[in-house]
C-alpha cells in the first residue's frame, strides 16, 4: 500500500483533520508554557484609569499570545518553593530502582514459568496476571499497615516496594512475549555443555533479553513516575518526597498566582518531554513491542 502513495484529494482532508487534532493536543501545552511566563495582570486582565481622559480602561487578558513582559521570575519562585531539584532526583531514584527490581523479578519468574517444566505453571501464570486488574489504590490501608510494621514508612523503600509489586504483572506479561522468541535450542546446547539452570539463565537467556528491558522499563516508568496517592501517604518527610507530591504541594502555595503554577507545571513536564523528543522512536517501538508481545 505504501507504494501507491498517489496524490488524492481525500488525503488533504485527512491531513486537515489530523492537524486539528495536533492543535488540540499541543495547544494546552503551548498555553501552559506561555502563562508560565506571564504575570497575573496579563493572565487575568486588569483595568487602569487613563490620566488624560480620566476614564477607566479595561485591558482584557492575554490568553493566546506570547507574553508581553517575560516573567522569568516565575521560574525562580517555583524552583525556590519546596525543593524541586531534590524531588526530581527522588523520583528518578525511585523509578530506576523500581525498574531494576521489576526487570530482575519478572525475568526470573518468566524463566520459571516458560522454560522450566512443572505442574501448575499455567495456574501460576494466571495468578500473576491477576495483578493487571487490581487497582493500586485499593491496597493502600493494608500496604500502609505492612510498611509501618516493617518500619519502612518514610523511606525510599516505602515507594519502591509497592511500585515494583504493582509493576510485576505487566513485566511478566511482556517478558513472556520476549522470552518466547528465544529459541529453545540455545538452552539445550548450554545444558549439554553442562550448564545448570542458573548458568543458562544468566549466561544465555538474560543477555538475549536486553531489548525487553526497554519495554518493561517504559511501562514501569509510566506506572511509578506519576503515582500520587501512595507517594502522599507513605512518605511524609521532604527528604524522600517525589515530584508529583512536590508539584501538588506547590499548587497549594500559590493559589492565586498563576505564573509560578505554570512554571512548576512546565518544570515538571520538561524533563520527560526532552527525553521523549530525543528518544521518541525508541520509546514508541518499545511501547509497541510490549503491546504486541503482550
Amino acid at each position: 500500500m505504501r507504494e501507491v502513495r498517489k496524490f488524492k484529494p481525500s488525503n488533504i482532508i485527512v491531513h486537515i483533520l489530523l492537524l486539528i487534532l495536533v492543535l488540540i493536543n499541543l495547544f494546552p501545552l503551548y498555553w501552559m508554557v506561555t502563562f508560565s511566563l506571564k504575570n497575573n495582570d496579563e493572565i487575568l486582565g486588569y483595568s487602569y484609569v487613563d490620566e488624560a481622559t480620566g476614564e477607566r480602561v479595561l485591558v482584557p487578558p492575554n490568553h493566546v499570545g506570547l507574553p508581553q513582559h517575560w516573567e522569568w521570575g516565575n521560574y525562580n519562585k517555583a524552583m525556590n518553593t519546596g525543593n524541586m531539584g531534590q524531588y526530581f532526583i527522588n523520583s528518578l531514584a525511585v523509578s530506576t530502582s523500581v525498574i531494576a527490581i521489576t526487570v530482575i523479578a519478572s525475568f526470573m519468574a518468566t524463566y520459571a514459568l516458560t522454560r522450566m517444566v512443572w505442574k501448575g505453571r499455567k495456574m501460576m501464570n494466571k495468578f500473576f496476571m491477576l495483578g493487571l486488574t487490581i487497582p493500586i489504590h485499593a491496597a493502600i490501608v493494608p500496604v500502609f499497615t505492612i510498611l509501618s510494621k516493617m518500619k519502612l514508612l518514610n523511606t525510599y523503600a516505602a515507594l519502591i516496594v509497592p511500585y515494583a509489586a504493582f509493576s510485576l504483572s505487566m513485566g511478566i506479561l511482556i517478558s513472556i512475549g520476549f522470552m518466547g522468541d528465544i529459541p529453545y535450542d540455545l538452552d539445550e546446547a548450554a545444558f549439554l555443555d553442562g550448564c545448570g539452570v542458573w548458568k543458562i539463565f544468566f549466561r544465555v537467556i538474560a543477555p538475549l533479553m536486553m531489548p525487553a528491558i526497554a519495554t518493561v522499563g517504559i511501562y514501569t516508568f509510566l506506572q511509578c513516575w506519576n503515582e500520587l496517592l501512595f507517594a502522599t501517604i507513605f512518605v511524609s518527610s521532604g527528604k524522600y518526597r517525589t515530584l508529583p507530591v512536590g508539584v501538588q504541594q506547590l499548587f497549594g502555595q500559590y493559589t492565586t498566582d498563576w505564573g509560578p503554577i505554570g512554571a512548576a507545571l512546565t518544570i515538571a513536564t520538561l524533563p520527560t518531554m526532552i527525553v521523549y523528543i530525543l528518544l521518541s522512536k525508541r520509546i514508541q517501538d518499545s511501547f509497541i513491542a510490549g503491546a504486541v508481545k503482550g
Binding site: 514508612l153 521532604g238 504541594q249 497549594g252 493559589t255
Partner: peptide, 20 residues
C-alpha cells in the same frame, strides 16, 4: 519547618503514623 496547603494538610497529618 515546612508548610502545607490547608485541605491537604488535614489528610496528611491524620495519615501520618505516630513515629513519623
Amino acid at each position: 519547618w515546612e508548610a502545607f496547603e490547608n485541605d491537604s494538610y488535614k489528610t496528611k497529618i491524620k495519615s501520618t503514623s505516630a513515629e513519623e
